[in-house]
Amino acid sequence: MRKISLDKINQLFAEISSKSSLYIPVDTAAGAKFEKYDGTKTMSDALNTVRSAKDFFFPQTENMVDFKVEGKNIEIVEPVNEYEDFVVFGVRACDVKSFEILDRVFLADPVDNFYKNRREHGIIVSMACTKPAETCFCGTFGIDAASPAGDIVCHKTDDTLYLDAKTEKGAQLLDSLNALTEETDSSAVDAQKAKTAEIMKKLPLAGLDASAFGADKTMEFFNAPEWKELSEACLGCGTCTFVCPTCQCYDIKDFSTGHEVKRFRCWDSCMYSDFTRMAHGNIRNSQLERFRQRFMHKLVYYPTNNEGIFGCVGCGRCLAKCPINMNIVKVMKKLGGNK
């Protein structure tokens, strides 16, 4: 494990950003947000960014291919892909876990090359949480906020940043920073972890239990009468899906600019009325069915297809951002017998 005094953190950022693009969370009037480090920015202490870190690997919209039409010729133009290496600094445990959930979708056969490319070029430097919010419930899904995954894991105290490499990629990056950091033992980090573990137990959602849900429980919950009440106020706005680090649905469309056709992909939301529109019509005609889909996907369908792993990481963004305050915790409590 290495450490660096927080006074020197800008030197550390400067060093990393001299080799590859570096993104750090910064505070803005509209909340924390990942921005490219340019020598002037200060790292935010905010718990989570408003938008999740999935944007780095699965952006809201991307161009997949262009078709240029000239006379009778159609030229296929592959958009330039970003092959540059980048480092995302300060990702929380929940968001790091979300990459694993996305990997199981995008890296499974057939592999999504756009996603894979970004994953390969990205280095994740995670940051342990010390002050979880009342909306955090990562623990429900077995995530330890004090020991996130990542290529390099950081722990921050009042004056020092501790860095520990967990993968080969991470070790390479950390080694390259040796001139700035010094070797240390893990006592300060262990003390912090123990303190955070105590806090985690006191969080209001600490007792939330997901064990009622999971693989192969579809028929147990699909026709539950509670969906009516739960979905009653849902506006179908899709905010919950767009801020969610694990929501992964997208739409692919061709867009004519007049002289060429752009094929793009963009995030889609199961909360939207046109999400399941097909040639014969729509299979989910009510907001109840759309609402049910989102939560069944996280709590039942995803685990069914992924060895019991849940599709939610408990980041709490949907709790904070839903305009009518309906969210996965309320769904779990109502359906899963949680108190």
Binding site: K253, C266, S273, D274
Partner: peptide
């Protein structure tokens, strides 16, 4: 903006 036939690509924020 929800009508795919309108020519607006709402979700794409093109």
């Amino acid at each position: 903006f929800d009508n795919p036939a309108s020519g607006v690509e709402n979700k794409a924020i093109s």
